[in-house]
Design a protein around this nucleic acid. Sequence first.
DNA 1: CCCAATCTGGTCCCTCCGACCCATGGAGGG
DNA 2: CCCTCCATGGGTCGGAGGGACCAGATTGGG
Lengths: 203, 203
Amino acid sequence: MIRILIADDHDLLREGLEQALGAVPDIQVLGTASSGAELLSILDDVSPDVIMVDVDMPGMSGLEALGKMRGGPPAIVVTMHESAKMRKQAMDAGAVGFLSKSTPLPRLAAAMRAAVAGESFIDDDYDVTSHMNAVLDPGAAALTARERELLSLLATGVSSTDELAEKLYISQKTVKNHLASIYDKLAVSDRAQAAVEAIRLGL
Amino acid sequence: MIRILIADDHDLLREGLEQALGAVPDIQVLGTASSGAELLSILDDVSPDVIMVDVDMPGMSGLEALGKMRGGPPAIVVTMHESAKMRKQAMDAGAVGFLSKSTPLPRLAAAMRAAVAGESFIDDDYDVTSHMNAVLDPGAAALTARERELLSLLATGVSSTDELAEKLYISQKTVKNHLASIYDKLAVSDRAQAAVEAIRLGL
DNA sequence: CCCAATCTGGTCCCTCCGACCCATGGAGGG
DNA sequence: CCCTCCATGGGTCGGAGGGACCAGATTGGG
């Protein structure tokens, strides 16, 4: 279980992330802060495994806060400014991860797992996919790319053979074959169980 | 059940809100868009009761998109620019609601309920609380106790009629009847989709 | 007191799903 | 070069699942 702290001044993002990340099986949201100062003040009470911090916050910025807490838990900086300059500033401030606010949720989760594992996680194009595969859940590792793709659809509520075949541009028979492989690897026996497993695995 | 559409270019906010709003009993997220153009394109396929749209989006802005869809479903504008000028622009573009991104989640939900009720909802200080109390009330989940019980089991991977009947001490036929009711209420058509919905609802 | 909702159970029917058999072509590793 | 894995596809078949009805017992609210 990864215990995290979220710092962002936008309530919608903060509360939304709290919900969404809390729903991830191995992540627990300990608390949130809406400013750098608030982050520092509650950091003493809770001891998170990793913190997610926004750059733009009223009063003390996320990077300032990071500078004042050297030696604390690893921090992942999330921002809407995707420039290389900002990334360097974040890393200089001691961040172990740097992500855009346009990052898909699972990648944020992957970054947190990487952070607690002592690795850094930079939102770049090269090498990221291989890195992510290493960080992702071992249970899902056995699945092939195509199987994961199908399973992801299943986890979003696309359940009929027909729809799945359509969305994957393959025949209904191939869908059934992939499903059979998934059932075997996940030790389940139907789509409902597979969907539950898929969500549990964060797909 | 309020069926909504979310348009925001920041994946984290979009996915977070999708999760968080989907967890609200009387709200169902039909889909999301990451640009004004995408919003317009999917608006034809789904017919939401209300849409939430960000102002700042690449290409076509939220306000531009609103201007092009006059006559569509009511729209709530959410932005980080809290100026009165921006609010006026939003209302001129046809928005029925205007909220800051620093708005607490329940207020956003309240605004959506107000929007479908034909009322407008402006993020102002005066009169808002009284308005909210009138609009709030989380609208009890349509599911009955027994249905929720069955659905919870489904969400834990108990999918076969046989097992469900056994664990609930009822006949297989009654399981099927309950499932049929659940399908109807959740607008799904099989156990896999119901399981996905159940988890999304936090069961 | 009656009506509506809920929980329980039933029958019929037919689609669809999952199990098991197989084949082919391509990619990659030893 | 061969062998394995993957993705694609085919066929068959029994049984489970879902749709469309119905109906009795109980409970609670108007």
